[in-house]
Amino acid sequence: MLKKLIVITLVLLIPAGFLFANGGSEKESSNLMVIITPDKDNTFFTAEADAAKAKAESLGYKTLMVVHGDDPNTESDIIDTAISEKAVAIIIDIANADASPNNLRRANDAGIPVFCMDREINVAGIAKAQLISDNFQGAQLGGEYFVELLGEKGNWVELVGKESDTNAGVRSQGYHSIIDQYPDMKMVARETANWSQTEAFSDMESILQANPDISGIICGNDTMALGAQAAIEAAGKDDIVVMGFDGNDNVLDSMLQGKIDGTVMQPNALNAEMAVELADKYIKTGSTGMDQEKILNGCFLIKPDDASKWRGFKKL
């Protein structure tokens, strides 16, 4: 009889055991922030990762730095790692606007707050905060300067970023919202070069052959601007305006050499730092203290004269 009682007691206590184990693990939280970015090669993303890491460490967190290579499956694996490591927060530049929300939801379900930077997700309530560059405002600044440099007229080309990335569309729309209002500006070609320098180079090579009288090329990001500029030089031309977007150091250098004509500086270091700061605040107080989830940070037009004033996406 006593035996039976002990068995019953043990059986009844099983859920209690789970409860205490669970409670215990929450208390000994890892102090680990998992910082996830798309790519190790693009300086835009490394600057973002570095800024987030530095801020997190200055606030006393350990960090785990990972890249997903724009692959939602890799991103999913990383989220699993973050969950098993009991991360206190995930700071992420997402892989894919359509697939990432489901990955991030799993982190949420495991009790890990998520903070997005740079790329946005369109589902509310998954991220505690989204720190986004105002790509449209930035593209309008770039578009206005482009039109000004061309004297409000001429044949122009647009190189567009990766279509799965919302920001590619946003920037394109921002450019067109300005440039299309000038009837003497004629777009002769529009191609996606997938954010890639080599694709931009080969695309521009053939576009230049087909259209000898191009006055300007406006690009969805800086790496494509570098590719376009190289194609112009290879074709022996030097009077074509090239605009980039991001503000990466290579483009700033090119501007200082009188090659690329302008770019738009994204506050991406700021986005990363704010994401970590809000995560820290959320961990400590249970709230980010912001009245909305999505926070837009403004971009800056960079003309050649300003190029020496910025490095690593930060004003010197």
Binding site: E120, N135, F136, T166, V170, Q292, K294, I295, L296
Partner: peptide, 16 residues
């Protein structure tokens, strides 16, 4: 507010 409108494209559309 940006959050209420949705994404950047829609927010941009609204400004235009």
């Amino acid at each position: 507010r940006f959050t209420d409108v949705g994404n950047q494209l829609q927010f941009a559309d609204l400004a235009n």
